[in-house]
Amino acid sequence: MTSLPIGSDVDLAWVRQRVRQTAAELGFGLVQQTKLVTAASELARNTLIHGGGGHMEITPLDEGHVPGLRLSFTDSGPGIRDLDLAMTDGYTTGIGLGSGLSGARRLVDEFSIDSRPGHGTTVTVTAWVTGLPSPRGAG
């Protein structure tokens, strides 16, 4: 596992670069890499803008000889008051398109979110290399 800070736009670029590099090393195809980088970019931006910054943990996985990648984005911001609303396509608290959380969820195999108002948010996503059976039946 590696932890990367998310505190500025420069950090967002490092997150995208590290996710792409790690995904390529694990054998993810170009389309899968692009999906992972897109999801990571959305979630890292949310961590920075809505959470006031935080960090991403990137963890290569190998369960049952199926390579995967887990990304966790954690902040100590205000948290999300209404998770159902926040996960709705088109919902935005800012000037964005409202596709961040729901869009990221569609780009990965596994998605979880833990958020409590006043205590921050952690979003964890996992993707498995396609063409191989997922160890958890996801995908």
Rank of each mutant, 00 (worst) to 15 (best):
G96D: 15
R45S: 14
G103C: 09
T93V: 14
I6L: 04
V66E: 00
L61P: 02
L30T: 14
D89Q: 14
T130Y: 02
L85K: 14
G96L: 11
V108R: 04
R81H: 11
V10A: 14
R81I: 11
R70N: 04
P135I: 04
R106K: 15
G131R: 06
Q33K: 11
L69Q: 05
T34C: 00
L69A: 07
T38D: 09
V37F: 01
G29Q: 05
M87Y: 06
Q17W: 03
V15K: 00
G68D: 05
G94C: 11
T130G: 07
T88M: 15
T38H: 12
Y91E: 13
P117C: 01
R70Q: 15
G77N: 09
T124F: 04
A104E: 11
S72Q: 13
A40K: 02
R45N: 14
G131F: 06
Q17I: 01
T22V: 14
D84V: 12
L12F: 03
G79Y: 06
S8D: 11
D89Y: 14
P5K: 03
T38P: 01
Q33H: 07
R70H: 03
G96Q: 08
A13I: 12
Y91Q: 13
V66Q: 13
A138R: 13
L26G: 06
T34Q: 13
S112C: 07
V66T: 15
D84G: 13
T126A: 08
D11M: 00
G29W: 02
R116E: 15
A40R: 01
T2W: 07
T126C: 07
G79W: 07
G139W: 00
A138W: 04
D89W: 15
R16Q: 14
I113M: 15
D114Q: 15
G77T: 09
R136W: 12
G64Q: 03
P67C: 05
H119F: 14
V37S: 12
W128G: 03
Q17Y: 08
T122Q: 14
S134C: 10
L85C: 06
I80S: 07
R116P: 00
L69E: 05
P67D: 05
E42Q: 14
S115A: 08
F28Y: 05
P135S: 06
G52F: 10
L83D: 04
R45Y: 12
T38V: 10
A44Q: 01
R136I: 13
G103H: 08
S41T: 08
Q32L: 03
D82W: 12
E57Q: 14
V19D: 00
G139Q: 11
R45W: 03
E110G: 06
V123Q: 01
I6T: 01
V31C: 00
R105F: 02
H55G: 04
L69P: 01
G52A: 10
L26S: 10
G27H: 10
D109K: 03
V125H: 04
R16N: 12
